[in-house]
Nucleic acid binder design. Structure first.
Length: 151
DNA sequence: GCCAACGTTGGC
DNA sequence: GCCAACGTTGGC
């Protein structure tokens, strides 16, 4: 089992929305590195759900991967913001996974919290200019984030 | 709204 | 293959 951090703008898709729906396809990833991470996701992997571009950016709760990577349907949908006319059905360019709501954190683990924790120094999300919407998290980092959530 | 830090595009 | 221009992300 591995851990991942997935970013979403709550205006687009929030953790509260995932809680309501239970499960949701994680679509719209259009970055090759992030896509490769999606393809490495396995059912049961833990997802740290991060809210970005909002009042209080941070990790708000846990989800898990409930379906392994499959072709992201939005790439073939001309009405979608994520439509990619260059992607072919015979050779889909973009993948998505399905994620399932696990549990809310008792409190939001803010960016400042993440930065303050020595064990999280190397966390990819904290690297300047990192814009990947899916990044791997080490078991030690996941543990530290959960500890911050309980603090 | 600003701006730094990227990734992508396309001319050459 | 280089690299400038451009677009996007996301914290602040």
């Amino acid at each position: 089992m591995r851990h991942w951090l997935m970013k979403s703008e709550p205006d687009e898709f929030s953790f509260q929305e995932l809680r309501r729906r239970g499960r949701e396809p994680w679509t719209g990833v259009r970055n090759y590195q992030a896509r490769n991470f999606l393809r490495a996701c396995q059912v049961g992997d833990i997802v740290l759900f991060y809210h970005s571009n909002c009042e209080e950016p941070g990790v708000v709760g846990l989800a898990s991967v409930s379906k392994p990577a499959y072709p992201d349907p939005t790439q073939f949908d001309p009405r979608s913001d994520y439509h990619d006319p260059k992607s072919r059905r015979e050779d889909p360019r973009w993948s998505c996974v399905e994620v399932r709501h696990l549990r809310d954190f008792p409190r939001v683990v803010t960016l400042a919290d993440l930065r303050s924790h020595p064990a999280l120094r190397g966390m990819l999300i904290l690297r300047p200019g990192n814009r990947l919407s899916v990044t791997p998290v080490t078991p030690a980092e996941a543990k530290a984030v959960e500890a911050l959530a309980r603090r």
